[in-house]
Amino acid sequence: MIIQAHGLRKTFTTRSRKGVQTVEAVRGVGLDVEKGEIFGVLGPNGAGKTTTIRMLATLITPDAGTAVIAGHDLLKEPAAVRRHLGYVSQAGGVEDTASARAQIMMAARIHGVADPGRATAEALDRFGLTELADRPGRTLSGGQKRRVAIALGLVHGPPLLFLDEPTTGLDPQNRANLWDRIRQLRESGTSVLLSTHYLDEADALCDRLMIVDHGRVVAEGTPADLKREVSGDVITLRTDQPGRAAETVKALARETRVDDDLLRVYVDDGEHTLPGLLRALEEQGVSLTSIALDRSTLDDVFLAKTGRTLRDAGAAA
């Protein structure tokens, strides 16, 4: 294991016109990350993802809990922990005035890299930045800046990289490009701890993930296992009688969930269940305006664990 964390907690106290408020951002989070895997922390905004990563990166101190990272105790050996990881925040940290080359070179020197020039050239090449190396940060696109930010986090060759919401604000093409870069990190042996609120990102990239909500872990496993745990397929019906429809099909389903005019029916085998389900609804005079058959998604997992969808909780998919 490259990360073993147990019982992490963090509470923040804020003062405003409304008085003193206490917010439990992280409530007993634990996670184990294997060497050479991409591990995701999925959840809505405000779920505690960033706070968890900042604690593990030694940027803030946990109120409780323990962690061993790359063989070093988080609380007793923070300097050693920092030497073994790279950290890329949501903001990225790319300066507007300095060139990519200058910024990466400075990071290499700060980390005490033996040959900063060679390490910088390798980082630029690795992330397809050589032709952009001498342009100031303000002239780079959002996707290019994210690649520079990751190069800054990896120039000293750490075995572990923390990526906090790495693709927020990127267009689909740049997101896909960055996904490929992250997969290449895993192939080269780098472990990646990635936080995201994008369902497709967690599903596409993560070997394993945990879903967090209100500072707690509500589910953990591979994306496939988590979806299989909920159900094999989900039939989504749109009707003006969702309650009556749910009562009609409950004998055919593992579970049903009503969300306004939508009824989600969770079944083991959607293709074989669907004809009987439609016959039952027709016999009861329940009319439908649309119907869809899909594999369960991570949003269905979040819904099953929390009672609401990830989108409803304040995260875009």
Rank of each mutant, 00 (worst) to 15 (best):
V29G: 04
V29P: 01
V29Q: 07
V29F: 08
G30Y: 11
G30M: 08
G30L: 10
G30F: 13
L31R: 02
L31S: 05
L31P: 07
L31I: 05
D32G: 11
D32K: 06
D32E: 15
D32S: 14
V33I: 15
V33A: 10
V33L: 12
V33H: 09
E34D: 15
E34M: 10
E34I: 04
E34T: 06
E34F: 01
K35E: 14
K35V: 12
K35D: 14
G36K: 08
G36Y: 06
G36I: 01
G36L: 04
E37V: 14
E37W: 06
E37F: 07
E37N: 05
E37Y: 03
E37I: 09
E37L: 11
I38N: 05
I38D: 08
I38S: 10
I38H: 08
I38E: 04
F39M: 06
F39C: 06
F39E: 02
F39W: 06
F39R: 03
G40A: 05
G40N: 07
G40I: 06
G40E: 01
V41W: 00
V41G: 01
V41A: 07
V41T: 05
L42A: 11
L42I: 07
L42C: 14
L42S: 13
L42R: 12
L42K: 02
L42D: 09
G43A: 12
G43N: 10
G43K: 08
G43C: 07
P44K: 10
P44M: 10
P44E: 14
N45W: 02
N45C: 04
N45V: 04
N45L: 08
N45M: 08
G46C: 09
G46S: 09
G46V: 10
G46M: 10
G46T: 13
G46A: 11
G46I: 12
A47E: 07
A47G: 12
A47T: 05
A47N: 04
A47Q: 08
A47L: 13
G48D: 04
G48K: 03
G48A: 12
G48P: 13
G48E: 09
T50F: 06
T50Y: 01
T50D: 02
T51R: 00
T51H: 03
T51I: 02
T51D: 01
T52I: 09
T52P: 09
T52S: 06
I53L: 15
I53D: 01
I53V: 15
I53H: 02
I53K: 00
I53Q: 00
R54Q: 15
R54W: 03
R54S: 15
M55D: 03
M55G: 08
M55Q: 11
M55N: 06
M55H: 05
L56Q: 07
L56G: 03
L56E: 02
L56V: 02
L56R: 03
A57I: 03
A57F: 13
A57L: 06
A57Y: 13
A57K: 09
A57W: 11
T58L: 03
T58Y: 00
T58A: 04
T58C: 08
T58N: 13
L59M: 15
L59I: 14
L59G: 08
L59R: 05
I60H: 13
I60Q: 02
I60W: 04
I60R: 08
T61Q: 12
T61F: 00
T61Y: 05
